[in-house]
């Protein structure tokens, strides 16, 4: 647990990831991306630039998108983390994932998880975003394959799917 006095070596950490409670002892310098990948073996969170620019390592912490390379693992103590692995429910893909497949929102797939997590937060704040509002969020990650148009269409498709399932 994060403490009032300096700690070296292992720090105890309790965190809920994709609904599952985990307890670990981590080195203070371990970032959240490495914790998810190396400690929890949740390797769908990819690591790109490792200094916050590319957005590929995005995950949700208490519902907010963060660059997991720019957060320390110890900082998610007591919090709720959602990664790409947590999107599908009971073997059924999330509408955002289905939409990416239908619209060819990915080619190599390396960046895709980062986009999906940012889009999750977008829909949480705004279930029917305008094209401008989608671009603002999509523009926060880097994709070197699609040219973004297919991603934009994926988000619009997902918004339609999710709207339909709500009504």
């Amino acid at each position: 647990m994060a403490s009032e006095q300096p700690q070296q070596g292992g720090i105890r950490l309790k965190v809920r990831v994709n609904g599952e409670q985990h307890e670990s002892v981590v080195d203070p310098r371990m970032n959240l991306a490495d914790y998810l990948r190396e400690e929890l073996r949740l390797t769908a969170t990819h690591v790109g630039c490792e200094h916050g620019v590319c957005g590929i390592c995005n995950v949700l912490v208490d519902g907010q998108t963060v660059r997991s390379c720019l957060m320390l693992a110890v900082q998610v103590d007591g919090k709720e983390v959602l990664t790409v692995e947590g999107l599908a429910e009971g073997g059924k893909l999330h509408p955002i994932q289905e939409a990416f497949i239908e619209e060819h929102g990915l080619q190599c797939g390396f960046c895709t998880g980062g986009f999906m997590m940012a889009i999750c937060e977008l829909f949480d704040r705004n279930p029917s975003p305008s094209e401008e509002e989608i671009k603002e969020v999509v523009g926060g990650q880097i994709c070197r394959c699609t040219g973004y148009n297919a991603i934009l269409r994926s988000v619009q498709n997902a918004a339609a799917k999710m709207g339909a399932s709500r009504s």
């Binding site: 994060a2 403490s3 009032e4 006095q5 300096p6 700690q7 070296q8 720090i11 080195d27 203070p28 310098r29 970032n31 490495d34 490792e50 200094h51 390379c69 320390l72 110890v74 900082q75």
Partner: peptide
Amino acid sequence: MKSAPFEYVAPS
């Protein structure tokens, strides 16, 4: 990338 080791504290 991995930062150099450091101690950590988070007072409230």
